[in-house]
Design a protein around this nucleic acid. Sequence first.
RNA 1: GGCGGCAUAGCCAAGUGGUAAGGCAGAGCUCUGCAAAAGCUCCAUCCCCAGUUCGAAUCUGGGUGCCGCCUCCA
Length: 486
Amino acid sequence: MERAAIKVYNTMTRQKEEFVPRDGNRIGIYVCGVTPYSHTHLGHARPNVIWDVVKKFLRSQGYETYHVQNFTDIDDKIIARANEQGVAPLELAQEFIDEYLASMDALGVERADVYPRVSQHIPEIIALVEELVAKGYAYAANGSVFFDVSSFPGYGKLSNQKRDELLEGTRFEVDPAKRDAADFALWKAAKRGEPAWDSPWGPGRPGWHIECSAMSHKYLGCAFDFHGGGSDLIFPHHENEIAQSEAATGEQLARFWVHNGMLNFQDEKMSKSLGNFVTVQDLAKRYPKELLRYYILSTHYRSELEYYEGKLEEMSRGWKRLNQAVTNLEALLRSPDLRRDVSAEDEKALARIGEIQEGIVQALADDFNTAQALGLLFDLVREVNAYSNQDIQPSQIVLEKAEAVFQKYARDILGIVQGKAASGESSLVEPLMGLMLEIRQELRASKNFALADKIRDRLQEMGVTVEDTPRGPRWKIEGVSSDAEL
RNA sequence: GGCGGCAUAGCCAAGUGGUAAGGCAGAGCUCUGCAAAAGCUCCAUCCCCAGUUCGAAUCUGGGUGCCGCCUCCA
């Protein structure tokens, strides 16, 4: 198949670069996951939905993807919270991991290929720390091991930080065991009451960044294709990962660094520590997942995205029009008397649909510009609605072509249009509605509008909308094909 | 204090040198028994100043404002 040239913005070089996979068709992706000590919120949903779309798009272009996402299930915050609640830290982590995965399912996000956890990779982590010590990049002190930042010349290359200026204006207390304040822990000596593992330096546990170096290397090797995460991870997390990994292997950690913008709530970053979050579980109960994705994808992934109460309701108006267009198109496609030929007018329509499709591919290939793709999808909405409203009978060929574009991009890749209404559902509804509308048509024909309107009103009260179109009446039940009603 | 990023209509949001996509809201119109849906038309010169250029929202310099990171964070 013909592939579009894919360009991706690389945080490392601060520009868009053409992307070619490391190994032919196979694309290795590592996206930083979460520290599961609290609820999964909308801010977490963003990178997941974005990468879900990226993966699906890349596959539609004929690539294979291998996606790794970690869980940092050993961490100060987990331990602190577990102690508060009197449960085991790993138990607490498991609880939030379950919620996290359920949240992603609720958003229609495809699972990663592997979800490695720190607690299950202690030997790999210890081996990596030992290697760094042996190579002179790290030193042990008081049962802990620190990375010696001065030993790695490239330190700061991702975030553009200068080592001398790093500590200016910092607000935290420096561990006295460190030789330099900028050094960071690879291994932390155990304190009482904390989970600990045996190591060459005594009982302890991994520092924050080391797990990503150990696990990305285990599952993806060196210089894998994409390393992703929120822009808040650029420093220190990703900078430190680079130092650890590249010092140990002598090779590049990842080829493309892809960072998504923050999701703001009332002009502030939504985050667990600020407590200003809305959980995915809660949102998924209130809104269809396709609407949530539509909202997230309506802005380019590198920009900030604003959330506020009522935002989804605002978004839903346009989103409904898109969905309705697809639903109507599919209903029309089922009607028996479509033209099978292709007129000169049809050729023009086919050409326009083809242009739109090509535009969507180009938009997604250009740094995954979902916002632009959405705009094009609305062009298609208008095209299709206008075409279907013509006096002449529409051509099946044209409708099928448009439907295929909606199916592939709006449904399969972006996931912003609801699935086809479950056909054959509820045995009686179809024929009963058919009968009802048939009678109502007869009432209208005999100008008994009062009764005809009463039927329509009463049905509306029950949640069934009836629309009289030039091609006969049409009915729909709100949210019939969704998990939640709007 | 250091390092990034952003600033486009009432709101949201694409567009990185060639004369402003798209969505929501608003106004008018068409279709319609009515309603709904849909379609059509209208609705901005791109934070400010100074440059470069035949030509800039797009490049350069200087302002102003906002956000993120430098502490856990997607």
